[in-house]
Design a protein around this nucleic acid. Structure first.
Length: 587
RNA sequence: GCGUUCGUAGCUCAGCUGGAUAGAGCGUCGGACUUCGAAUCCGCAGGUCGAAGGUUCGAAUCCUUCCGAGCGCACCA
């Protein structure tokens, strides 16, 4: 809506510029397209068109160009709504708010949860892979950033009209899996999650750590793990049974973590099921000459064409590697669901891997290799550096979540709101999750971020709970209004009453929301939604603080402001859905 | 060494497809609740946007070089 008005003005001014140019220069010239901006201060209008770019061609000061354009446009009968403002070298527009608000209210309150959605992806089939845990240890903070991003980007793509399929890949085979199995076999004494009362994924993780200790004492440990992998690939019954048992424990534990953090998938893939296809494809590629074999039997690809070295695809003992199975996984995915785009949400440390993977698939002749995309996100670091499992500095996902939920619970109790809230634990969990998702998503995905376990997650300021609190306050106010609804029968909505600076800013933000959703979708970037969400919440908060809404003296004013609050709430709720924050009516 | 990403306030981050005076939050200090929810709001202080050149009417934003940091370049995943 706002976008249409901008474009209309842009077109009109460009037309006038062209006419003006022809008068001065006596010939047709190509003019640079007009740029659209937002003025830095409200009194300068709502849309800005800088005219510097034309000064040279016109041989006139931009201030003069602006003046002439303004005079000429003002006498035109047919022009878009709004008023022209001269601001030096800028030609600005002040929007006609009354008509904008009227249309906006109808649109937002009719479309409701769908307000802001677009169809820029035009039903495109997009598969998105994220999470991808190993079955040898529990989830940590790094996985949480991955999960938050995966869920959020999926929601954002759906809101932009994509047909999204969320997939997970369980990394359940490989030497690292054998390590925890071997340690369990040696030191486990038949311990189970039930007997030890340890969550399955944590129990398996315990033996992965144990392996690392044992490895230091026994130099044959790694070789033993490799032997186990060979046995596993041969289908040795004892090995497979142990593998099944321990994987089951881990997957149970992961399922619980996913449930708590609101992570869901349409389909699960398992490396154990895809690596064989990968192996076949590598051997076929060897036959067709895409790959080559060393004397020891290992299979390689030469990456000289893309200025890289060479990469091993099958070990000399014939077992598969990470790359081998990823080739198989991609191929079987395209067979299962012929995607038009496949997005891998994987940390930036694997950029090399994906560059090579995409190249290999292209060399193997898959035309869809060009539709593969690595959504690379930055590392989550701790104040003193990287998380290291060996140094015990890994932030465990379950612990972190539980601590946050506990803090939220205490906060509710401190405020003596336990009885007012819709379930203490339920609300505390929703607050914890909102805090976590917002914290992880507000940073540009491509950038590394620092997480301070002590200070990072607060419930005040630019945080998830702040946003939830704004939602709850609006919700509370609207409930009160509904209770007194009879007092307002027949009072019409009058948009011309919304004239304060905050009200105008709120209207603009509401009107601009669809653009924000679009931008977040095209850039695969939830942080755009986050900063917009904070901006509108903060603006609402200031407005609410300085103005009476439900308590306004005049009934018409109450109705006008309540409707604006409704629109703000709708945008906040729709934003919440895109970044994994629960909307709470009370908190 | 090669590749790649990044350097913005004490800390954590916006702003980066060039435009008007570079913004938030946290932290410090100070103010605002008999009034729609104070998990709130307001104010003070805090910046040679890593450095130097270049392109441009205009550079935090684009280009080059340098300095500094992260990540990668495994028969690990």
């Amino acid at each position: 809506m706002l976008q249409e008005i901008r474009e209309q003005w842009k077109t009109l001014i460009e037309e006038q510029l062209a006419i003006y140019a022809k008068e001065i220069l006596k010939e047709d010239v190509i003019l640079a397209p007009l740029t659209i901006q937002v003025p830095p201060k409200p009194e300068l209008g709502d849309i800005a068109f800088p005219l510097f770019a034309y000064a040279k061609q016109f041989r006139l000061a931009p201030v003069k160009i602006a003046q002439v354009l303004k005079e000429r446009i003002e006498i035109l009968a047919n022009r878009p709504s709004g008023q022209l403002i001269l601001a030096g070298p800028y030609l600005n527009i002040r929007l006609d708010f009354a008509s904008l608000i009227k249309d906006l209210k109808d649109k937002v309150l009719t479309e409701k949860d769908a307000y802001g959605n677009s169809n820029v992806f035009n039903n495109k089939k997009v598969m998105i892979e994220f999470s991808c845990p190993n079955t040898n240890k529990p989830l940590h903070l790094g996985h949480m950033r991955n999960d938050s991003l995966g869920e959020s980007v999926s929601s954002i793509l759906k809101a932009n009209g994509a047909d999204v399929q969320k997939v997970n890949l369980i990394n359940n085979r490989g030497v690292h899996i054998c390590k925890s199995m071997l340690a369990y076999k040696k030191f486990g004494n038949g311990e189970t999650p039930e007997s030890s009362n340890i969550k399955g994924d944590h129990l398996v993780g315990k033996y992965y750590v144990k392996f690392a200790q044992w490895e230091k004492e026994d130099p044959t440990a790694v070789d033993q793990a490799k032997e186990m992998l060979i046995k596993w690939e041969e289908g040795d019954k004892e090995t497979i049974d142990l593998w099944n048992k321990m994987n089951g424990w881990t997957l149970d534990g992961l399922a619980q973590s996913y449930e708590k953090t609101g992570v869901h998938f349409d389909k699960y893939y398992y490396e154990s099921e895809t690596y064989k296809l990968g192996k076949d494809k590598v051997l076929k590629g060897l036959e067709s000459g895409v790959f080559y074999q060393e004397e020891d039997g290992s299979v390689w690809i030469d990456l000289e064409e893309i200025n890289l070295d060479k990469k091993v695809l099958l070990r000399s003992d014939g077992t598969s590697l990470y790359m081998t199975q990823d080739i198989g996984t991609a191929i079987s995915r395209h067979e299962d669901w012929p995607f038009e785009s496949l997005v891998y949400v994987v940390a930036s440390e694997q950029q090399y891997h994906f560059k090579v993977l995409f190249y290999i698939l292209e060399k193997l002749g898959y035309s869809w290799a060009k539709d593969l995309h690595h959504l690379s996100y930055g590392m989550v670091n701790l104040p003193n550096g990287k998380m290291k499992s060996r140094e015990g500095t890994v932030v465990d996902a379950d612990d972190l979540f539980d601590n946050l939920a506990e803090l939220a619970k205490q906060e509710i109790q401190n405020k003596e709101r336990e009885g007012l809230v819709d379930g203490l634990d339920k609300t505390a969990n929703a607050i914890a999750l909102g805090a976590l998702n917002y914290y992880l998503l507000q940073v540009d995905p491509s950038k590394d971020m620092t997480f301070d376990p002590v200070k990072s997650i607060s419930f005040n300021g630019n945080t998830g709970p702040y946003l939830q609190y704004m939602g709850a306050r609006i919700s509370s106010m609207l409930r009160k209004f509904e209770d007194q609804k009879d007092d307002y029968l027949g009072v019409e909505f009058d948009p011309s009453l919304l004239t304060t600076e905050e009200e105008r800013e709120l209207v603009k933000m509401i009107a601009n929301f669809p653009e924000i959703v679009k931008k977040a979708g095209l850039n695969f970037n939830p942080s755009i939604i986050c900063s917009n969400l904070y901006d509108i919440s903060k603006m609402f908060s200031k407005w609410y603080h300085d103005n009476k809404i439900l308590m306004a003296e005049d009934k018409k004013m109450v109705v006008a402001r309540i409707n604006l609050a409704k629109m703000v709430l709708q945008v906040i709720k729709n934003s919440f859905n895109l970044v994994g924050i629960s909307y709470l009516e009370t908190m």
